[in-house]
């Protein structure tokens, strides 16, 4: 497959538009986060980590929810379209990357503000458990077998794993935690954040969400190619076996 064919199959006007949106909003976040927004009165410049930490956490949640929805669609649909399974897999892969970024950025933020990289507090522990669960999900996807077998077992795991998200999100409310409670989605309608900080954070959420969408769309198309290649190899193997049998006769 040459580069031109690859480009024709993977990139579309929609992905290009989403990609452009991602670039513009990410540029805004870099400028806004590093130059325009003020320091925090307590945390100083460390608050700027928030513009990466919060959006990556949001995108990781979103990715795992998309994985669960796509998995449910695969299980419930009559045709069991493999497209659903590929979206589920692609979304989980991207989600794992973003979740790891959340933990890494949070760890750096914690070192500067709390005074330690890590604490076994409810939010950090449940988040790391969520990450490990989805790494396991990806490992299960790679166990082999037919495409249907892969789709069925990973769909079941995805539907169970997504139940961890409310546990992670509400862990700071259910238990006493070192991690601060939500500032924007606090539930009381009171957003405890400076205006320019909030704007940059929201643009960051948009930017990272566009990046997520762009990555998933491309990745699921690459997965479709891999599946097609696997099926071609299977067909070739079947043909060879049939030829071998015919030859023996």
């Amino acid at each position: 497959m040459d580069a031109q064919t690859f480009n024709a199959r993977v990139a579309t006007p929609t992905t290009r538009l989403i990609g452009a949106l991602a670039i513009v909003s990410m540029a805004w976040v870099v400028i806004g986060g590093l130059i325009v927004t003020p320091k925090d009165v307590d945390q100083g410049d460390a608050v700027r980590i928030m513009y990466v930490h919060v959006p990556t956490a949001w995108v990781a949640y979103l990715a795992f929810i998309v994985t669960a929805l796509a998995s449910a669609c695969w299980l419930l649909s009559r045709k069991h379209s493999m497209g659903f399974d590929r979206v589920a897999g692609a979304s989980a892969e991207v989600g794992v990357i973003f979740m790891a970024m959340t933990l890494l950025s949070g760890s750096l933020w914690g070192r500067i503000t709390w005074g330690s990289y890590w604490a076994w507090d409810p939010r950090l522990t449940t988040t790391s458990f969520l990450l490990v669960t989805y790494i396991g999900y990806l490992a299960v996807r790679g166990l082999g077998g037919s495409l249907e077998q892969r789709a069925r077992r990973s769909a079941v795991i995805a539907l169970l794993a997504v139940l961890e998200i409310p546990l992670v999100h509400f862990s700071v409310l259910m238990w006493r935690s070192l991690h601060q409670k939500a500032s924007v989605l606090s539930g009381d309608g009171d957003i405890k954040m400076d205006g320019s900080m909030l704007t940059t954070l929201l643009v960051g959420v948009i930017g990272f969400t566009c990046t997520f969408a762009w990555l998933v769309m491309h990745r699921q198309r690459v997965l479709a190619m891999q599946d097609a290649m696997q099926m071609t190899q299977l067909d070739a193997a079947l043909r060879e076996r049939a030829d071998e049998s015919a030859g023996l006769k």
């Binding site: 320091k39 009165v41 709390w114 500032s183 405890k192």
Partner: peptide, 14 residues
């Protein structure tokens, strides 16, 4: 061991 438990308020430093 001492860890700082900062609040969920983000106030501009001026």
């Amino acid at each position: 061991r001492i860890e700082v438990k900062h609040s969920n308020s983000y106030v501009a430093d001026n």
